[in-house]
Amino acid sequence: MATKAVCVLKGDGPVQGIINFEQKESNGPVKVWGSIKGLTEGLHGFHVHEFGDNTAGCTSAGPHFNPLSRKHGGPKDEERHVGDLGNVTADKDGVADVSIEDSVISLSGDHCIIGRTLVVHEKADDLGKGGNEESTKTGNAGSRLACGVIGIAQ
């Protein structure tokens, strides 16, 4: 089992970053940390998408990683996509320092995120509470600013 993974985020604009993942036990939580720069100040949706395909930019990554066919939600919700990591918060300089621990994603097994795409979005994720159909699919997080395929790390 891989215990570490990394993702280099890039987009068409100024947004870029490096996100690290570490899972010490196969059924334990995954620590997610790193930094994203070039964002507007505020909240930005942060999700693992189904495919590791960036051939047409971030759009070819498909929908959120959702092997259990659930509705979109927040990272602490029972009803959520596996890939729903909530929001990252950018400061006035456009930098989001990421520090998350998640017990639904994994670096092995059915919820493995390796080979899938991590995406940072234009807007805040409403965590499935926006009151419309799009909220239950995407959290109304808007366009995909930057993305990268999650790969095994040393």
Rank of each mutant, 00 (worst) to 15 (best):
A2M: 09
A2Q: 03
A2S: 11
A2V: 11
K4E: 09
A5T: 02
A5R: 01
V6M: 00
C7V: 07
V8P: 02
G11V: 05
G11E: 06
D12L: 13
G13P: 14
G13C: 12
P14K: 10
Q16M: 15
Q16W: 14
G17K: 01
I19A: 06
N20E: 02
E22D: 09
Q23R: 01
K24A: 11
E25Q: 05
E25P: 04
S26C: 08
N27D: 15
G28E: 13
P29T: 15
V30K: 01
K31T: 11
K31V: 09
K31Y: 06
W33G: 08
W33N: 11
G34L: 00
G34S: 03
G34F: 00
G34P: 00
S35M: 05
S35Y: 05
S35K: 12
S35N: 12
S35T: 15
I36N: 01
I36H: 03
I36S: 02
K37S: 15
K37R: 11
G42L: 02
L43R: 14
H44C: 02
G45R: 07
G45M: 07
G45L: 02
G45S: 12
F46D: 03
H47M: 13
H47N: 12
E50A: 12
E50R: 03
E50F: 00
F51V: 09
D53A: 06
N54G: 11
G57C: 14
G57L: 03
C58E: 15
C58S: 13
C58R: 06
C58L: 06
G62V: 08
P63H: 14
P63I: 03
H64E: 02
H64Y: 07
F65E: 07
F65C: 10
F65K: 06
F65S: 06
N66S: 08
N66V: 06
N66Y: 08
N66I: 06
L68H: 10
R70W: 10
R70C: 14
K71S: 10
K71G: 09
H72I: 00
G73A: 12
P75K: 01
P75D: 07
P75T: 08
K76Y: 13
K76M: 12
K76L: 13
D77W: 02
D77N: 12
D77F: 15
E78W: 12
E78P: 04
E79T: 14
E79Q: 09
E79D: 14
R80Q: 05
R80T: 05
H81L: 13
V82Y: 08
G83N: 05
G83S: 11
G83H: 10
D84L: 05
D84G: 05
D84V: 05
D84T: 06
L85Q: 00
L85M: 06
L85W: 00
L85S: 04
L85H: 02
G86K: 00
G86P: 00
G86D: 00
N87G: 03
N87S: 08
T89L: 15
T89K: 06
A90F: 03
D91Q: 07
K92F: 06
K92N: 11
K92Y: 08
G94S: 04
V95H: 07
V95W: 15
V95Y: 15
A96G: 04
D97W: 12
D97N: 14
D97T: 12
V98M: 06
V98R: 01
V98P: 03
S99W: 15
I100H: 06
E101H: 03
E101K: 11
D102T: 14
S103D: 09
S103E: 09
S103A: 11
V104I: 15
I105K: 01
L107G: 01
L107F: 04
L107E: 02
S108F: 15
S108G: 13
S108V: 10
G109S: 10
G109K: 03
H111E: 10
C112S: 13
C112K: 09
I114E: 03
I114V: 10
G115R: 02
G115T: 01
R116I: 04
V119M: 10
V119I: 09
V119E: 04
V119K: 02
V119L: 04
V120P: 00
V120A: 01
H121R: 09
H121L: 13
A124S: 13
D125L: 08
D125S: 11
D126S: 07
D126I: 05
D126E: 07
D126W: 05
D126C: 11
L127G: 12
K129W: 14
G130T: 12
G130H: 09
G130L: 08
G130W: 08
G130Q: 08
N132T: 14
E133Y: 13
E133T: 09
T138N: 14
T138E: 03
T138R: 04
T138Q: 04
A141W: 06
G142W: 04
S143I: 12
S143F: 09
R144Y: 06
A146N: 01
V149T: 10
V149A: 06
I150W: 02
I150N: 02
I150E: 00
I150Y: 02
G151M: 10
G151E: 15
I152W: 11
A153D: 14
A153C: 13
